[in-house]
Structure formats: structure tokens, C-alpha cells
Design a protein around this nucleic acid. Structure first.
Length: 124
RNA sequence: AAAGAAAACUGGAUGAUCGCUCCGACCUUGUGUCGGAGAGGAAAGUCCGAACAUUUAUCUCGCCAUAGUCCCGCCUUUUGCGGGACGAAGGCGGAUAUUUGGAGAAAUUCUUAUGCAAAUAAGGAGGACUUCAAAGGAUAGUUCCUAACGGGAACCCUUCCGGGCCGCGAGGUCUGGAUGAGGACAAGUGCAACAGAGAAUAUACUGCUCGAAGAUUUAUCUUCGGGGAAAGGUGAAAAUGUGGGUCCAUAACCCACACGCUUCGGUGGUGACAUCGAAGAAGAGGCAAACUCUAUCCAAUGCAAGGGCAAGCCCUCCGACUUUACGUCGGAGGAGUACGGUAGCCCGCAUGAUCCCGCGCGCGAGUGCGGGGCUAGAGAGAUGAUCGUCGCUUCGGUUUUAUAUCGGAGUACAGAAUUCGGCUUAUAGGUUUUCUUUUUAA
RNA sequence: GGGGCGUUAGCUCAGGGGUAGAGCAGUUGCCUUUUAAGCAAACGGUCGAAGGUUCGAUACCUUCACGCCCCA
């Protein structure tokens, strides 16, 4: 499955509300991964960087582009049928591209394990 | 020459691989191929101002025009048909605008009376407009520039620092630089801790001095009653100062002058203001980023403004189901009216108070004319990631008169979100200008 | 995109031009067999940063930084 930014991007406010409302999450030192299963044959994602991470828009844009590039380069590795978002945690030093990849891939790989479970109960 | 500070301008180039957004072309209509374009001087802060859009209120403004009324013509049993005038509501456009209250008030219009009519008189409606008071917010030298602004230009004045000349001196004059959120404290009210004798109706602590009395050390001290603000000290600030005369007194007082003030007049300037002369008054402190007063300005909301569209709702046909009907579900087709206006899509949205060049006008900010250019458009938000090469700065090694070469480090601030004009703040390196310090040379 | 508020002792807050305060915490002492409570004393501050107005600024004005809240 080839990568196409237009298709594999979460766009609608509804999508975000659904993930926040009924989804799983995984944590690491600097990242949080929130995701949910879908009926689609492809996966979609988005990157969230708060202003609390950095005041400067340059830093935030760079982080988002780096994460997107990491996923794009090895898109075949991403399990299908998931909507997920990568949230950069505030308070940590801005990491390099390699360090981000090292943290991100284990979490993405673990998503496949949740395929057999049903969605958790919505916590409003 | 070196170092530093401030201001203005500038804001590295390029290759490979993999990608993103928009536009165009092509056909094989594919999440295709090819080509083109793709952040800034501040895109930032949101401190101001505008464009644009919608909304609120008023109008005695203009246009369109429905119901209705009136008039004319035609037909006629009536309903009616055609033309014209006035046109409630309504629509489109325009003007006005801080809020509240009061006073006056033109056009227009209604009623009554007189009159054939025109008109006149009285009473009302009406409110354009004028004006007064209160309350809120904003701005503040002058003239100009700008669509506008708390922006910009030139100038004026204040304060501070320096230099030349004149004067016994206070000071004057010429000139260079910096500086100011720069109306009014001579309308009223208010404020000034501590220190100090006294702080705004000034003040007598020390010291000075006159008179009287007393004491004794006989030229000093004490007490009482005056004079007086020149000396001391305090403070941010002590009621202008200079030279002389008089005097018991360096004071008061008198004379002359300097600075400052008020009024009138002349001259120069568009003006702020400058300058000259005359007369008068008799010395007036500071703070309005204290209340306040004066003059001028002021509707609200912001592109998430605002507008449009698909699906659905409706009708017809077909099929399935059953409770056989004006039923339910599904599919296809049609109409696109009315209402509604969203988590979707489109427009708004990139030709503009635009940029560049030339000429003219202006001290300048700017402006007029002519020619040329088109230069991002996302929407959980594109303009990137990785690896190199060359510049530039700096450090170290080798070599050298210069320099060359090798290695290391650094290469800023920062990312469009409706669009513009300013202001403010951030900024590696480079260039220019001004200033300061040091050294060298003349 | 638009609007509002805050920043003062370790913590929570007063003070709105005249040299900085309260409560709690912490320190020392008294009390008590000891601790707590109570009583007393002293300590602790660039008043977020810079500039301006003023004789004088924590306060008034401007710019900046940080934090919080509201509207859509």
C-alpha cells in the first residue's frame, strides 16, 4: 500500500473526537500514541504538537514534519485498519530524527496486538 | 589602523535520492506522465489605523414597485380590459451616527374661520437643522503628507552638554550636538515622607544688628522689646538676580541694569513663533503618565464576517414484504418550487491605497504622467527529510614575504492563515554612515 | 481570530505615590517527663524584566517575558 498524504491523513473533527472518546493509548518518554480500529483497508494518522512543547512555530512545524517523514519512509510497516495520532509531550528537549524513530516504531508495532480486542468503553 | 556602541540596508549558493501543495498540458482517465510556481523583513507581538462584509437606529434623500385610491378611454347587464397619476407595506441604493436629557426650529401637511379662487389668520402634526447640559472613551506644539492612524516630513519652542565673541557682573549673541507622550498649574481643588528654624496665607534656630535694664572681667555677657532674610546648615525644591549708593549693619530703602510677566502697537513668517518699541505691574515655585479645565474625534461585530450548493424532504414507475393500504423497505427516473442553512464541498481568496523604471512638481514625507511586471494560497493546516559540495566567520597544525593546504566548530531571528498601511520587539555574518576610546604618522 | 486578568517572603494573599506587611511553614527560646498545642523573639524580599513621568514608583505610563481564564 503506497503512501498518499491526502488519503492517510486525519482531517475531520469527527475523527479526532472518536479517537479521544473511544480509543487506546500507549506512552513513551516523549510521545503518546492514541489510536482506534476502523473498518477501512488502510490506516490514517495525524501529528499533534502543542504550543506547550515550544512557543516557536518553527520548532513545532519541524517536529510534525519529522514524524510524518519517519512514517512515510516505512509505510509498509504500519498495520492496516487503524486511525492513530502521535502526540508530542511537552516539557522534553526537542529530539533528533533518529531518536524519534527509535521511540515511535515499537509503539506502532504494538498496535497490531489490539486488533483482536473490541473498542474500550467510551469515557465521554 | 584597531576595538566598541548606535542607526540604515542586506539576510549565502548548489547537487543527489525520496516526498508535499497549487496551476497548466496530454491521453491510456490512472490516487498517471510531463512542465511551471511555492514564506518574511520582521510572516511575530496585536499596540494603532483602514479596506471589505454583515447588523442596529434615523431620514422630510433617490430609484423600483405590490395592495389600494383617483382620473381618462373602450366594452357593457355586471365582473372587466387598456393607459396615466398618487403610491401603505416591501426591495435596492444613498446619507447621517458615542450615550442620555432639555430648548428652539425651516420645508411639508391637517383642521377651523374668511374668501369664487389665490391667499391670510388661529390651532395642531412634523421634525431637516441649530443649540444647551450631563456621562463614557480617545487624542494634544505648528504647517504639511497620507484613505486613515498614537504613523511620516519639515519647522518651532523647552531642557541638557560643548565652543567662539561681547559685558565689571547677572547675562546677551552666534553656532554644533543631544532631548521631549510638547494644550492649560496666571480658573479651581489636591499633594510634598525624612531632614530642616521655616515647605506655599512662608519662616527667626545659629549668627548679625538697634534700644532699654542688669552684671561685672570695661568690652563682653544675660534678660526684655524691636529690625532684618545678606551668611550658616537641611532638602528635589527656601519667594529672581547683578553692580553701586546710603547705612550701626553684607539687610531694609534708593539708583541703574539683567532675566521673567501683562497690555498695546510695528516688522518678518502660511503658522507655531521670532524680533523691535511704548506703557504698566512689582517677582509670579513644582506636579495634570493628580483630580480637573480647554479644543478636536467616536454606532456594533469581525473572513469562524458573509454568500452559494449536494444529500434529505416531494412526485412517478418497478420490485419485495405483509395487516391488501392514502402502508413499510429498496432501486431507477423527474421536478428544482417553499422552508431551513450544518461536523461536508464551493465562493469570499490573491490585480492591489500593488511592485519596478523614467520624467515633471515639492526642502521633504509624498504626488502626477508614461512604460513594464504578475510574484504562495494551506484548511488538524503544503513549502519538507536525509546525505554531500562550495562560500563566509573563527580556532588549531604545517609551510611561507604574501599565501596555500589539512582538521575542528559555527552559519542568526524566525513560518503565510481575508487583505493592506504603520508602530513595537527579535536578529549570526556582511556593507555604509555617525560617535567614543586607544595607538601610530603628519 | 478576538477579549480579560494576574506576577509582592518557601506557600496563600494585603498594600493603589513617602523607604515592605499579615497568616501558615521554617529557626531559636519558654512551657512540658517528651511531642503536639500555646506564648515570645528574631530571620527571610532586586515587589517578573527594561525604560519613562516624578524630588521620590511595589503603585502611574509604555514595551517585553511568563502564567491563567473567557468567546467562537
Amino acid at each position: 500500500m503506497a503512501f498518499a498524504y491526502n488519503q492517510n491523513r486525519l482531517g475531520k473533527k469527527k475523527d479526532f473526537d472518536e479517537i479521544f472518546g473511544s480509543g487506546w493509548y500507549l506512552n513513551s518518554q516523549t510521545l503518546t500514541l492514541r489510536f482506534r480500529k476502523t473498518e477501512n483497508s488502510f490506516s490514517r494518522f495525524s501529528v499533534i504538537v502543542s504550543t506547550k512543547v515550544s512557543k516557536r512555530a518553527v520548532d513545532r512545524n519541524r517536529l510534525r514534519r519529522q514524524v510524518r517523514e519517519i512514517l512515510r519512509k516505512s509505510w509498509d510497516r504500519v498495520p492496516l485498519g487503524f486511525d492513530f495520532m502521535v502526540i508530542i509531550k511537552p516539557g522534553k528537549k526537542i529530539a533528533t530524527s533518529d531518536a524519534l524513530a527509535k521511540e515511535l516504531w515499537p509503539m506502532v508495532d504494538r498496535m497490531i496486538n489490539f486488533k483482536k480486542y473490541s473498542a474500550p468503553v467510551s469515557k465521554k
